[in-house]
């Protein structure tokens, strides 16, 4: 007993030293159980966000107003599904099977980004999502390219390459609308009004209230705090909104010379908690869509396994 706990703390010290030295931790390396659990939670949540994230924009693929926009949106949504796959594979390296990941999503045990619990009500929402939601994701993901777990860091590098195209296509949609007819401009402003605050919520609670932040920072799973990342996003977005001639819906938004950053208003944390807890406008619809997709896939997966088994037996007979 004594010896094994000594051994355990020796291993933890070596592990922490490697993390501190910016060495990447790989799947076969020893790691504290809490590190593994923390990673499974974070990476799978990230993967689920990519997969559920197909739905709000997917809602507009069939109605995209030009064929070029339709093609670009299809390419983007395809990327998001691909990101989901990279991240599921990264999670699987930690010893959890895909079926279990799906189960955790569908039972609500695992979360996904709450932003996707808001509805896409006009074409401008597709623009706003690309500009703001992918923009916020990039801020977060660039930081995660330096995360301590090798497979996660490498997935982030691949994903970041594709994300800049997502943000660009969204901003381009907003640009056309903002310079278009009165109706189009109003559509763009309405989308900004509705997506701005939920986007700021994507960065999570204030650092002081963040349940997982302490150990995540120590283990370098997270590299920058929620508030730092949120500030970075606000700072970059203000000029972009000005360029569009659209107004960010925050009366308190103001440049602070002393801090060298924009000050901004307080997030409605009641809304944050409510949406996280399931009361958002589309929580039910998003999970239901994924549940139906998964359940309707049951017979397809059964067929796939049955066919593979038949093939295997035929091969055995051939070689026998």
């Amino acid at each position: 007993m004594e010896i094994s706990s000594l051994e355990e703390s020796r291993r933890e010290a070596i592990f922490q030293a490697r993390v501190d030295a910016e060495e990447k931790i790989e799947p076969k390396d020893w790691m504290p159980e809490a590190y593994r659990k923390n990673l499974i939670r974070q990476i799978s949540q990230h993967g689920h966000s990519e997969v559920v994230g197909q739905l709000p924009e997917g809602n507009w693929i069939t109605r995209a107003p030009t064929l070029r926009r339709k093609a670009v949106l299809l390419a983007k949504v395809q990327d998001e599904a691909g990101h989901g796959l990279y991240l599921y594979s990264a999670t699987e390296t930690l010893g959890i099977a895909r079926e279990e990941l799906m189960e955790q999503l569908l039972t609500g045990k695992a979360k996904y980004a709450s932003i996707f619990n808001y509805p896409t009500l006009s074409w401008a929402d597709v623009g706003a999502i690309g500009w703001l939601v992918d923009g916020a994701a990039i801020v977060n993901q660039i930081s995660l390219c330096r995360t301590s777990y090798g497979p996660y860091a490498r997935a982030m590098v691949r994903i970041c390459k594709e994300e800049s195209f997502h943000m660009r296509q969204g901003y381009e949609i907003m640009t056309v609308l903002a310079r278009g007819s009165q109706e189009q401009k109003a559509m763009a402003q309405d989308a900004l009004n509705r997506w701005w605050w939920p986007t700021l919520m994507m960065f999570g609670p204030h650092d002081a209230d963040s349940a997982h932040s302490g150990s995540s920072m120590k283990w370098k799973i997270k590299r920058q705090s929620n508030d730092e990342l949120r500030q970075k996003f606000v700072d970059q977005s203000v000029a972009q909104a000005q360029h569009l001639n659209l107004k960010i819906p925050d009366e308190k938004l103001k440049w602070n010379d002393e801090r060298g950053h924009y000050d901004f208003g307080e997030i409605d944390w009641d809304e944050f908690t409510a949406v996280l807890g399931g009361a958002g406008p589309c929580n039910h619809e998003r999970l239901e869509a994924r549940r139906i997709a998964h359940e309707q896939g049951d017979w397809v997966r059964d067929a796939m396994f049955a066919h593979a088994e038949k093939q295997r037996q035929r091969d055995v007979r051939k070689t026998a």
């Binding site: 997969v51 997917g58 299809l74 949504v77 395809q78 599904a81 796959l85 997709a293 997966r301």
Partner: peptide, 20 residues
């Protein structure tokens, strides 16, 4: 394209979007 996000599994979401 109606399959996007609704396929039996995520691999097929990618394939359907790509085919569309």
């Amino acid at each position: 394209s109606e399959w996007c996000g609704h396929s039996p599994f995520v691999e097929e979401d990618v394939a359907m979007a790509n085919t569309a």
